[in-house]
Write a protein that binds this DNA or RNA. Sequence first.
DNA 1: CTTGACATATAACAAACGTAATATAACATA
DNA 2: TATGTTATATTACGTTTGTTATATGTCAAG
Lengths: 193, 193
Amino acid sequence: MPKSVDVEEKRAEFVRASWDVIAAEGFEAATMRRVASEAGCTTGSLTHYFADRRSLLIEALRSAHFQAGERMGKVAEEGSPFERLHAVLLESLPLDSVRMREWKVWLAFWGASINDPAIASEDAKRYAEWRALLENLLTPLSQDPEHEADLIIALVDGLGIGLARAGFAGAALKRKQSECEAALNRYLGKFND
Amino acid sequence: MPKSVDVEEKRAEFVRASWDVIAAEGFEAATMRRVASEAGCTTGSLTHYFADRRSLLIEALRSAHFQAGERMGKVAEEGSPFERLHAVLLESLPLDSVRMREWKVWLAFWGASINDPAIASEDAKRYAEWRALLENLLTPLSQDPEHEADLIIALVDGLGIGLARAGFAGAALKRKQSECEAALNRYLGKFND
DNA sequence: CTTGACATATAACAAACGTAATATAACATA
DNA sequence: TATGTTATATTACGTTTGTTATATGTCAAG
């Protein structure tokens, strides 16, 4: 007899609203009221789906990790070993608005992870998965997949942050994105000879 | 006739207190009260030296940049071209507690720069200086200093964040730091043959 | 329809914030 | 030592926050 809604979809809406607020206005701006209004309702509804702010934001981070992980898995399935590696690394950079939003969310959470073990732990989990995928992809390509993964992870993190950090927009952003892609390709050249 | 204190030194004390709070407890924890108490006084004294929270935190960022820049300049002055590059890049990583604090502060500010143009601008300024120094150091070593600088900046950012992001401590931290140093040396090997 | 459980909105609360105003303490000069 | 400016502490104010409590709305089953 009760009114029924798709609970998981409703939670996902609030998670997406959190992403939008964090990516556009920063972590501090992601208050309960702000996220609720971004989702088009009030805190009364939001608290009905998330007990408190912390659990909302942690779910937002976990969800961003999951979404990115799904995309990585997909693009890692087809092509030659080099093509797979190349596709995964390209997919990992903030080269469109969706991935840029993800990177800004991650950047915000990295800063916030300083004193929140739950956030740091969620980050560590994702990092381990990401690293395992990379090592697999590098096994047929490198004599030292572990060390090569260290370098590539750092490179991708650095390139991504270089794009997400400052407030690039429009043509300047497009140029920066092309430079990043070129830098990645230049480094990967050593696997493609 | 007035009581006189060293204004610049007093401001520096508050800046250092900001660093400690941000690095240990995150950006959000750096409230006026918290920073003042970390410095051993109350907000009354803090507001006497910094008009508001924003100017305090921006000065904290600027000061961290300046301090790191001074160190970079020093270690870039002696040795062969390769030795200079190597020394500067080693100095840029969070391999001791002072530099770790700096990196955590930067990480926190990167997240906060999303919606604060002044922070983003201060970051961009520092980035330009850092890039110029690197290009100079690379000129005698690389046929393509600009592109090489792109890669190295990304690599160092990624390595530094890998150390500063998660909550490593004790032996695990030391091991991670050694791995980072090794990864850097492995990449720089191509300049040292 | 009526009903009753769930969804959502509204309202209220204490706590913490940035900031400003005010009061006290300290000290260099006269 | 007396004085007056500066440094610091204390207090207070208006906002905003997370959270909780209460009221209103909504819809599927009987």
